[in-house]
Every structure is written in structure tokens, then in C-alpha cells.
Computed example of a mutant assay.
Amino acid sequence: MPRRAAETRLVPYARLPRAYREQTVLHSTVGADGLAHWLLGERPPRGAPPEPYDALVVTVGDGRPYETRLNAVTARFPHLAALPDGGFVVADARSRAGEQQVQVFDALGRASWTFRVGDAIEHLLTDEAGDLWVGYFDEGVYGDPLSAPGLRQWSATGESLWSYRPAASADSISDCYALNVFGRTAWACPYTRFPLLRIGAGHAVRVRENPVRSVLGFAVHADRVVLFGRHGGRAGRLVDCRLTDAAVEPVAESTLVRPDGGPLGRRRVVSRGPRLHVQEEPGTEWTVLDIG
């Protein structure tokens, strides 16, 4: 049995400047380079496709904050990702066949590419080369051929580069609960059995059995992985584990809490190698657990 600790505190990481706080946060992410980005604008309607709208990306973490204005955004349920050349990707989490749901913007905010990657995007993360890693939730996996693999890699121009196929010791992905992208390597922890998958050079997939369920995010470094999720209705469960050749072995367990020691509220996470980034509502601040 893993030993239990009282709590593990997050550390402040990045904050949306006060001058932008009255604008609506449509989405936020942490890029491959560690910079935090906020997509700001008027909330698009959730029903029929909206008229194209303008949005503002505010970037924090490398000196003074800077802005990138995006023209004619179309996503109703936007996901934001940053590209290494200073551009951005905005993808609609929901889409139908024939819809060009992904827009690629250059560093000046001009749309350069549009394409479709499938319905029900759960995670959208870029790697250091600018390729897109997309994890899908169950409605897409069981309802859209493009989303059916559960996890795919795309180029920033819409070329399909790789899609998951069940390995000998792992099942199909029903829902990509957790995704971690760092350098050119992707890790995933999918439903239903939550194996830890590592997709490395040449798209070689390594599978480790994992006894920890309901993993929502994780940090990984060397032979250590820290899994974040929920268990038995308890929010903020953190399980510190050792990696062996074939398995994830729990060592210690604690509760992840805010920097001030308070319990986490409604939140989302971005996993980047040894860093687990956590953002609570209303989405104006990122905190981090760094095991590097």
C-alpha cells in the first residue's frame, strides 16, 4: 500500500494581467515552451455556428505580456494551442463531417490553414515541432471515424501523422482522460483501464499497467510519475508512483491543494513533462506541480 501524506501544495505559475480581467476567457493553455496563453473574446453562441468573431490571445511568462489579435475565429467551443513560430491553433471541440473546425493563425493573427480532425476534442496540445496531439472523449470515439482511435497526431497543416492502435497489452481507447506532451514525446492515460502509454521516437508505443483509476492529468520525469485525479468522490487525489519496465507502482498518496492550502475547486489541467499545470475557474491563473 502507498504511504499517505496530508497534502501537496501547488505553486503559482502565471496570471492573466489585471487589465484583461473584464474580458471573457474562452480558453487557456500552456505551450511546449512553458508560456501561458489566454484566448479572450465574447462568448460565442453554443447552438448554430456563429458568425466569425475576433479574439485576443494574451501571452504571459517571457518578460512583459504581449498580445496577438486573431481575425474571424469560428469555434463555438474553442481549444487554444500555441505554435513554435509564434502562431496559434484554435479548434472547435465539436464538429460535424465537412466542417473545417481547426484554424491555424500565423504570428500576426492571420488565418493560414483550416481542416478537420474529428469530433469531441478532449485535449489539444502541440509539441516542440508544432505538431498537434489530439485526445478525444467518448462521443467522438464512438461517433466519428476521425476520432475513433482516441488519440491522434496531426501536422499544423492538417496531415494525419499517426493514430493509436491497440497494442498487444492495451485495449482500445474509449476516452482519452489524460494527455501529456513534452518535447516530441506524448504520454496518455486513457479510459477504461488507464494504462500509461508512451509514444516515443518512430511512434513506438510502450504500455505500462497502472492500478490507479480516474487519472485526469499527470507529471512524468525519469522513472517517476505523479498521477492526479479523483477517487471515491475525493477531489484532488495525487498518487506518486515509480515506473518499472512494465508497470506503474504507487509509492505515496496525498491530496493536491492550492498554494494557500485550500481545496481545489472546479479546474482543468495541462500536463507538460514534469509539470502538472492546474487552472481553476474563472481561468485567470495557472498554478503548477513540478517534479523535475
Results as ranks from 00 to 15, higher is better:
Phe137Glu: 01
Gly135Glu: 00
Val181Glu: 01
Ser163Pro: 14
Val134Asn: 02
Tyr136Met: 07
His123Phe: 07
Asp127Met: 02
Gly109Leu: 05
Glu139Ser: 15
Asp127Ile: 02
Gly140Arg: 02
Asp131Glu: 09
Phe115Gly: 07
Ala170Tyr: 06
Ala120Val: 10
Ile173Glu: 02
Glu128Arg: 09
Ser169Gly: 15
Glu159Tyr: 03
Glu159Val: 08
Pro145Ile: 09
Thr185Cys: 11
Ala129Pro: 08
Gln153Ser: 12
Thr126Arg: 00
Gly140Ala: 08
Asp175Ala: 13
Leu132His: 00
Asp171Met: 14
Asp127Ala: 05
Leu125Val: 09
Asp127Thr: 03
Ala168Gln: 14
Leu161Ala: 06
Val181Leu: 03
Pro145Gln: 11
Gly118Trp: 04
Ala148Gln: 10
Ser172Tyr: 14
Ser112Gly: 15
Ile121Trp: 03
Ser160Val: 13
Leu108Ala: 15
Val181His: 01
Val141Lys: 05
Thr114Ser: 12
Asp119Trp: 08
Ala168Trp: 13
Trp154Gln: 02
Ser155Cys: 00
Glu159Pro: 01
Thr185Leu: 10
Asp119Tyr: 06
Ser155Glu: 05
Arg184Gln: 13
Asp138Ser: 12
Glu122Trp: 12
Arg110Ser: 12
Ser174Arg: 13
Arg116Ile: 05
Gly140Asp: 04
Glu139Met: 15
Trp154Glu: 00
Arg165Thr: 14
Glu159Ala: 00
Glu139Ile: 15
Pro145Arg: 09
Trp154Asn: 02
Thr114Leu: 10
Ile173Leu: 08
Val134Glu: 01
Gln153Phe: 10
Gly150Ile: 05
Pro166Asn: 07
Asp175Thr: 13
Pro145Glu: 11
Phe137Leu: 08
Trp133Ala: 04
Ala107Gln: 11
Leu179His: 01
Ser112Asp: 14
Trp162Asp: 08
Ala148Asp: 08
Glu159Cys: 00
Phe137Thr: 02
Leu151Asp: 02
Asp175Trp: 12
Ser169Cys: 14
Leu125Phe: 10
Glu128Asn: 12
Cys176Phe: 04
Trp113Asp: 06
Pro145Asp: 11
Val117Glu: 01
Glu128Gln: 12
Leu179Asn: 00
Ala156Cys: 11
Ser160Thr: 13
Gly130Arg: 01
Gly140Ser: 03
Tyr136Lys: 09
Gly150Ala: 08
Asn180Phe: 04
Pro145Trp: 10
Trp162Tyr: 11
Thr114Gln: 11
Ser147Asn: 09
Leu132Arg: 02
Leu151Gly: 08
Leu146Trp: 07
Gly183Gln: 08
Tyr177Val: 11
Trp154Gly: 00
Thr185Phe: 07
Ala168Asp: 14
Glu159His: 02
Leu108Thr: 15
Arg152His: 15
Gln153Glu: 11
Gly130Glu: 03
Trp162Ser: 07
Leu151Asn: 00
Tyr142Phe: 15
Cys176Trp: 03
Asp175Gly: 12
Tyr136Ile: 08
Gly135Asn: 06
Tyr164Ile: 07
Ala148Gly: 10
Gly118Lys: 02
Arg152Leu: 14
Tyr142Ile: 14
Arg184Tyr: 12
Ile121Gly: 00
Ser172Gly: 14
Thr126Ile: 07
Val134Gly: 02
Ser160Asp: 13
Val141Glu: 05
Ala170His: 04
Ala156Ile: 02
Trp113Gly: 03
Glu128Lys: 08
Leu179Ala: 05
Leu124Ser: 03
Ala156His: 01
Ser147Arg: 03
Arg110Glu: 11
Ala148Lys: 10
